[in-house]
Design a protein around this nucleic acid. Sequence first.
DNA 1: ATTGTATAAATGAACATTCATTCATTAAAA
DNA 2: TTTTAATGAATGAATGTTCATTTATACAAT
Lengths: 194, 194
Amino acid sequence: MNKSDKRSDILQVTLELIAERGFHDAPMSEIAGKAHVAAGTIYRYFENKDILINELFREIGDKLLEAILNNYPEGKPVQEQFSHVFGELCRYFLTNPLHFRYMEQFFNSPYGISKRRDKLSGKNIHQDKRDTLQEIFDEGISKLILKDLPMSVLSSLAIGPMLYVIRDHTLGFVVLDESLIRRITEACWDAIKR
Amino acid sequence: MNKSDKRSDILQVTLELIAERGFHDAPMSEIAGKAHVAAGTIYRYFENKDILINELFREIGDKLLEAILNNYPEGKPVQEQFSHVFGELCRYFLTNPLHFRYMEQFFNSPYGISKRRDKLSGKNIHQDKRDTLQEIFDEGISKLILKDLPMSVLSSLAIGPMLYVIRDHTLGFVVLDESLIRRITEACWDAIKR
DNA sequence: ATTGTATAAATGAACATTCATTCATTAAAA
DNA sequence: TTTTAATGAATGAATGTTCATTTATACAAT
């Protein structure tokens, strides 16, 4: 039995419970039960519930970033980089719908808000990987012929629609296939190109 | 003292607490206290917490729709209708940031998800007003020269970015003024027009 | 191999809070 | 006087966390 066995069991169950039922209604006791672990054991791996929640967010973020950076077309035209990031983001979340629901809830809860606030006020102590993603957009966007809009607006124009469409997909409002993903990517590109 | 005095006090405090601190961490006792009302009084107006939460959502939705339908350019070109809806949506949320944070959390929680699921499966008992908004988009979008994409994708392309930008605004990442709103609206239009 | 010992991991009942909700009682209104 | 509204202490269920105790593991000496 691997040392991280229980730890990842706990994270997996936390993911499932919170993604499906929200932060409230995901009691530690139930997490423990579903992970086949005693209640107290969780606290050997995570100091408290908040830290568990934040740690899970971090791990999902890392995996997502890894997926995006894989085969990243370094040095290629911005539009190609853009399409790559979009496609991978989309494919990742379609493959991992629970990750998507978790991230969505996290970002739209006080957890995510305080995280963004910290970032804004420069409290980001360790120059972590998530900034790399930001840099990719930064560089890619400012170099080429894009609309003269604030950085954060451009990334909203680019990312916003995709996340909404993914949500609709997970709810069955629309079926996202490769062809549709491509066409949405193009539409987003239309929004940001000059 | 108006009959709905206490009722709206309760709703207002619920809005403030949940918008700022999330669904968890908004205890009924504190809502009661801040609304200068006894704990039990809440239950004279709202059967339970869930109903309170859903009712608040409904009321905010009504106000938002009212703002959007005010001066709606009936019969005018789709692009103009589009700009109108966008501008009003944006202005409403900038004026009522708490409403924005509440809606965001609601939609991204199991509350909102089940609401959307009901809608999809036709459980929408009373053909309510929120469908009117959908119809406006439906009609406006399908009539003109827009990209041949599924309805839900088009509305994601249109609405998604704006909501993200508003979130950034409320967090101080960007300052939304009238000129910027207009330019974002144009960018979104670029995304959906053929 | 076997035993003994020290360290680490895991347990789950117990605890202290917190929370939504109830209801007997009081105050206000009609 | 009757009806309606409001109160807030009490209730009971749920929850996050702790900790004394048990179990497993690693390793040394025999």
